[in-house]
Design a protein around this nucleic acid. Structure first.
Lengths: 187, 187
DNA sequence: GGAAATACAGGACAATTGTCACAGATATGA
DNA sequence: TCATATCTGTGACAATTGTCCTGTATTTCC
């Protein structure tokens, strides 16, 4: 539990027992059930979620009533609407659980305070955000340079487990194609 | 010149004269001519570029010989291949100048040292990376939820000046559509 | 266990986009 | 200034993808 969080942070920055003791109180453990919604589209976003076990997704419903999946997050990943979380604006996305999920969550206030108290932690979050930036950039590159079929095969290589844990409708939504089109690639 | 850099940083964190005097030496002024290449695809990436004046782009040539534009960067924007810059790997992109361009550049070593010396600067870069993450997320959302025409009109609203400074072939490449398709939207 | 919801595949047709070819307009550089 | 790139628009056709539909497993939940 707390060991997982510590190990996750220490992949980036080393912490003394004392330092980790100051970090931990900022994180609140929360568990959710499958199908439970943790952020509603157009609502405020209280938390950034670190997933210990389980699977969540963030998705936007557009005016035509269709759901577009922005992100999946599994064990050791973070998920939130980063823009809304940081700016205190309304969420562009709904975030919900595809499986029963246990998390640590942190508020913006806690995060800012933690970063001021412990510059190491600002470095940690900075590195994490950079990794997210790089992942998004790869996804954009896929969109501008590959056709749907190649994007699917690319995802298969990149995240083979995801395909198994998530129904294909959602994979299609994540890739920006219709379910039927995705079907054409997978005999 | 240095005033622009300082103002840019102070949009995020306040600096004393003394602090800025410690920041400035880490930045190297460099000027480039139109069409000049500052990062070659598959080479190492020495710098992160902060643009004082001018316009650059980063783009990847895929195996079919086509150029796919990842990013444009104008005044007060940063540009580099962030993944290659941070990991010391080979660049996925070529970065070149669409206009004569004057910049401040910073090496990874300087950036890391600066962040250690002045936690404020780590916060500054963290905020900048977060902004980049949010921008990329919007772009991904466009790809999964809009058709080409809507993506174009969205870009028109978002960055009207860009359309004027950049040929449409490149706008098309940035949007991930052919030049001819883009032509169909612009009567 | 059984009803209801969800997941998946496939066919037929329409809409969107890519490709190729050609032509005129504009910018660029010696 | 003039020759040469580069940029842009357009039409015809092919390829890709979306939409609507039907039918069948499979899962979920009381």
């Amino acid at each position: 539990m707390k060991e997982i969080l510590r190990a996750h942070i220490e992949e980036i920055v080393q912490l003394t027992d004392d330092e980790f003791a100051r970090v931990l109180p900022h994180f609140i453990p929360k568990t959710f059930k499958k199908h439970q919604i943790v952020v509603h589209q157009d609502d405020l976003v209280k938390y950034n979620f670190f997933i210990l076990k389980g699977l969540m997704k963030s998705a936007r419903i557009t005016s035509d009533g269709k759901e577009h999946i922005m992100q999946f997050a599994m064990e050791n990943w973070w998920i939130t609407d980063l823009e809304a979380f940081h700016n205190g604006t309304n969420s562009k996305f709904t975030i919900d659980c595809l499986e029963d999920t246990t998390t640590y969550v942190i508020t913006l206030e806690s995060k800012l305070k933690l970063c001021q108290e412990l510059p190491k932690m600002e470095h940690f979050f900075h590195v994490k955000t950079t990794a997210g930036y790089i992942a998004l950039q790869k996804r954009v590159l896929c969109f501008i340079s590959s056709k749907a079929q190649d994007r699917y095969h690319n995802l298969l290589e990149q995240d083979p487990m995801l395909i198994q844990r998530v129904p294909k409708v959602m994979i299609a939504s994540f890739l920006g194609v219709s379910r039927e089109t995705l079907s054409r690639f997978t005999p």
